[in-house]
Structure formats: C-alpha cells, structure tokens
Amino acid sequence: MITFLLQGLRISGPYVLAALAGVFSETGGVVNIALEGILLNGALAAVLAAYWTGSPWLGVLAGVLAGVAAAGIHAFAALRYKVDQVISGLAVNFLVAGLSRFLLKLVFNSTSNSARVEGLAPWAGVDPFLVLTVLIVIASHWTIKRTVFGLRLRAVGEHPRAAETLGIKVLRMRLWGVLISGALAGLGGAWLSLDQHQFTDAMSGGRGYIALAAVIIGKWTPLGAAAAALFFGFAEASQIILQTYGLRVPTQFVQMIPYALTLAAVAGLIGRSRPPAADGIPYSDEQD
C-alpha cells in the first residue's frame, strides 16, 4: 500500500507540474498544447546537463530553462505573430520530438535512449522533486488568488481589452503566463527523466495532453488541476500494479485505463467547466 502511494506520487509529479503549467498559460488566455513538447524538452535537457556536468541539480536547472525556451517559441509565434495557438503548440511538439531524436543520435549514438545519469539524492528520505512540487502547488494557488500578478493574469485571459483600458500590458502578461508555464513543465520533464536516470525517445508519452485534460477537470484552478493530475497519476500507478498482478487481460487494455479515464472525465465535464473567456483568442493592441 505504501509502495503504491509512493509510486502514485512519483508518477503524478510530472502530471501535476504540467497541469499547473497549463493553468498559468490558459489563465492568461494562451492555449498551451505545447506542454507535451515542453515536457520532452525539459526531460532531454536535464539528462544532457546531468550527463555533461555530473550534477543532477544542474540538470534540473537546464530542464527548467529548456522548458522556458520551448515555451518561448510558442509565445513568440502565438503572441507576436498571432499564429493559431493550437497550430503553434503542435509545431513546438513536432520540433522537440525531432530535435530530441537528433540529439540522442548525436550525443549518445542511440535511437532509443541516453546513457544513465545520476538522479537527485533524497532529502531525509524524501524525493526533492516531491517537496518542490508540493511547494509549487501552494505557491501557484497563492499567486493566482492573492497576488497582483494573478489578478491581472486572470483579467487578460478573460477580457483583454478591459485589462488594456486599465493600462495593463496584455501581451506582456500573456508572455509571462506562457514562460512560467514553460518553467513548470520543464521542471516536470526533468523529474520524468532524472527519476528514470535516463532519457528515452518520446518519454513524455502524452502526459502534456493529459495535463491539459487535468486543467479542464480542475476548472482552470491550480488546486483543482493538481488534484485532477494526481488522479491521473494514480490511475497510471494502478495500471502498472494491475499489470504486475498478471491479470488475464491483455496489457494493452490495462495501459488504456488512464486515457479512458481522461476521456470519460472530460466528456462528463463538457459544458460544466468554463475556460477563461478569451482563452485561445489572439490579442492585438490596436484593433477597432
């Protein structure tokens, strides 16, 4: 039971961070389907940095920065050039998928996985990622609900023109939302790869998309999205445990559980969970 709990938390971590990332981006009004690619980019950069420097903590830092960089591309296309946000996000996903394969081949001469790297040493027996994530969940909730930044971010995601009339720089706020999103999802990616001590091709495995579902189920709030992400994480953990029990069900069906749950949960919520009013709608400063 304890192992199940711990494993559930471990697996949930990247989901939780990616879901929070989604909340920050979409609260500001930018749909961030690039979460998948940001996770992958963070995972890759973390392993590369840990491999080259020997320090897993520098790996974590690199993961965060790589997440910000990938999010920056999305922000640049979506905010500066008003590219459709879904298209721009998908482009980032494809870009990172290709780039990571290229670097795997180049650095590790492999098509599937990197060399093994050292993971983070536990703090008093607890995974530092877990501690960080708990703190980040609380900080995110506090940031959105209590700070000036959070209030303004919500405003630009709901009614950007109203925010602009009050002197708030809409695009700058949105940029911050997306960059924070990148940092969080990049950290999630670092957790994913350092936890396994290596990077494997396409290791994000759809977690970015599931995180988006968690954002919807969590009604675009940090606590709600984190709770929904935990739910998906535990669904995946139970799937792994069910497999080890050797049920007489094809493993493919057991592996489907988290995705089927996602579909069911999102379908059940259609119409009851309302996104920020201006989510996904490009904003330009001067239009009449």
């Binding site: 919500r154 709901e158 009013a277």
Partner: peptide
C-alpha cells in the same frame, strides 16, 4: 462595458491600480 465577468466588483474596480501592493506581490483585498 469593460468588465471582467468572473471577478468581483472590488477586483474590477482596482484592477491595474491595486492598493497595498507588497514586496511579495500580494495586494490589499
């Protein structure tokens, strides 16, 4: 009207000029 519908009256009024901004970024709700 330039109002952010899910926010409260007070939040809409002070938006952009929030009172009592602190060093850690909170404001006096």
């Amino acid at each position: 009207f330039m109002l952010v519908k899910p926010l409260s009256v007070a939040e809409n009024v002070v938006l952009g000029s929030e009172p009592g901004a602190s060093a850690v970024g909170t404001w006096d709700q």
